[in-house]
Design a protein around this nucleic acid. Structure first.
Lengths: 225, 225
DNA sequence: ACGAAATCATGACAAATATCATATTTATTA
DNA sequence: TAATAAATATGATATTTGTCATGATTTCGT
């Protein structure tokens, strides 16, 4: 099994602040795991006894609302950590995590991470900054949900995915989402999301290649009202 | 000026994890301040060079959206800390803070807090837990905004204020908000908020004493659709 | 106490979005 | 590969919410 000390993935998350010794210790107790597209990594209400370091792939974090609809709250991608929040608050997860494509992750047990949080202030501050950033993003989402139209939110989602996760060689968005996923990010009915995407297509703002979406006019998307 | 070591307010926030010595040091450089209702504590985009410990009163944290409407993201009350997030991320504030009634706060400069975060892991972990909790609440708000009706959101806001901030001797909600504030919490037009409150009143779910609101049937509010 | 300004309230209408129905296309699997 | 299921697409319509107009009430400063 590969070693954390030599893993380049950690450069992209708080684990980079761990010392060589800490990494060796974590490496010895971590477990590597492959996750298939659509597989549930952990469920809402489930105890998450550690943190996942994502080596490859992307997943969605969602919460089931009382009316039975799933709301996607965040997407977590290669290089990032998954399950930090629950670990720190010591509660079971408030969100469900589902793989959006095939993933490879390392699981680090809770006890190890907590030990490091309490001993290594640099690591702990790094996690704190991560969380502060998540909180800021969450605030922005709240404002968007509350104040913007479905059309605007969907346009911004497309731009967000484009800018954060990039494109395939043919220019289509590298993250492949169903129309239902788009609806669950934007917080609308699936039919509404489909309709808006159709409209964007008619207006030449996007094009589609099978299920893949390609942004054709990003400035147009930014001007959507 | 009163001393942090003896202040009972700190029992309610992360400052309780500081050592006696740390508190003495902080006490010597903190400044106490009175803030009038409606006063801006800090503005969106402004650098917040420290943390406020709220000794008395309550304030709202809001963000101006592009369409010119204010969205209230959180309320912070006596006992809690204000400005943590910006301090940790080292950025200027993403939110505006405005006093909802007369307040008394202590301001602790950034350098002092950062020093303690880096030296005292217990304190740092406490702040981390606080932030994790804020993040969980933010997730819940996102789901509510995305999936629930204005009526439901307003009902839940009333219940939240009732349960979190309590009532006056006559049973009215102790936090006095304008109809516009309610609209800005729920993310709707002021007229819509007014209309829904009028409806709740007609249905006997709430009553009003001047601008004050009294919850008459909390189970009814919980069942609103 | 008085007038100006803000806040609250309500009606009428417009716009956005949800829901239901029903094709059509695409994926899955027996 | 045929049969079946799932996802996408679109129309018709209902519901929710926003906007504009207007008046009543409350608050505030002098």
């Amino acid at each position: 099994m590969s070693k954390c000390e030599q893993c380049i993935i950690k450069q992209f998350n708080s684990l980079k602040s761990l010392t060589k010794n800490e990494l060796v210790r974590i490496s010895s107790c971590k477990t590597s795991r492959f996750i298939k597209k659509g597989e549930v990594i952990f469920d809402e209400g489930e105890a998450v006894n550690g943190v996942y370091c994502i080596k490859d792939g992307i997943c969605k974090l969602s919460k089931l609302s009382e009316n039975g609809k799933d709301q996607i709250v965040k997407m977590v991608v290669k290089g990032q950590l998954l399950g930090q929040r629950s670990l720190i608050s010591g509660e079971s997860s408030n969100l469900q995590a589902v793989a959006l494509n095939d993933m490879e992750v390392c699981f680090i047990p809770k006890s190890e991470i907590i030990a490091d949080l309490q001993k290594n202030p640099k690591f702990s501050f790094d996690v704190l900054q991560d969380m502060a950033n998540d909180l800021k993003e969450a605030d922005d989402i709240i404002v968007n949900m509350a104040q913007k139209s479905v059309k605007q939110r969907l346009a911004e989602t497309l731009i967000y995915i484009y800018e954060s996760f990039g494109v395939n060689p043919d220019g289509t968005l590298s993250v492949l989402l169903s129309r239902e996923d788009y609806a669950n990010i934007v917080g609308t009915a699936t039919e509404s999301a489909i309709r808006v995407l159709s409209q964007f297509k008619k207006e030449g703002l996007i094009s589609t290649v099978g299920k893949f979406i390609k942004i054709e006019n990003i400035n147009g998307l930014k001007r959507v009202e």
